[in-house]
């Protein structure tokens, strides 16, 4: 336990550790980083160091993982993460226009957060596996499919 890894966070990391044989603590890195990010919004070298310490790994191995996966953020971001799919199936059905609509209505570009810290518009490269409901987006990992500008406005407004 440390200032960064509270006892609650340690419990949550332990839950990931519990899935793997005891000698493979490294396997819990992704889970631990996700939990730390869930707690603090983004990762910092200090937070990754704390994870490295807890799992008994060289910090550099945690940095490597932290910088490889796009699910990890390294700058402060808004409370809610909006990820618009613009990959091929959504692109064919107006995904880019959906993204442009959101950018316009929030006044930010993909990759940025709103000034009030409410919404982070993730720069999403991957297909989000909602192709049959294209165009679609995820808000905090919840799928919203068959989007229209009106539907989007309602969804975004409801975010606190």
């Amino acid at each position: 336990m440390s200032d960064i890894l509270t006892s609650d966070l340690c419990d949550r990391i332990d839950a990931w550790l519990g899935r793997f044989p005891a000698e493979h603590r490294r396997s819990a890195v992704l889970g631990a980083l996700r939990e730390v990010q869930k707690e603090y919004g983004h990762l910092t070298p200090e937070r990754m160091d704390a994870v490295a310490d807890y799992l008994g790994l060289p910090a550099i191995q945690v940095y490597e993982v932290g910088s490889f996966y796009t699910g990890f953020q390294h700058q402060p971001v808004g409370r809610h993460t909006v990820a618009v799919c613009t990959n091929i199936s959504c692109w064919l059905r107006g995904g880019e226009e959906i993204l442009a609509h959101i950018e316009k209505s929030l006044g930010i570009r993909a990759g940025e957060s709103t000034e009030d810290g409410r919404i982070f518009l993730k720069s999403e490269e991957e297909c989000l596996a909602g192709c049959c409901g294209a165009p679609m987006m995820q808000v905090d990992h919840v799928y919203h499919e068959n989007l229209t500008p009106e539907k989007i406005d309602k969804i975004l407004e409801a975010l606190s």
């Binding site: 899935r19 493979h24 396997s27 992704l30 799992l55 490889f68 996966y69």
Partner: peptide, 26 residues
């Protein structure tokens, strides 16, 4: 056991997935 990735298409490749399960880059 259920586990989750962290955002990387390459982890769909089976050996990258194994690396990821081991807590490494994909």
């Amino acid at each position: 056991f259920d586990t989750l990735g962290a955002g990387a298409y390459i982890c769909g490749e089976e050996t990258a997935l194994l690396e990821s399960l081991e807590g490494k880059k994909g």
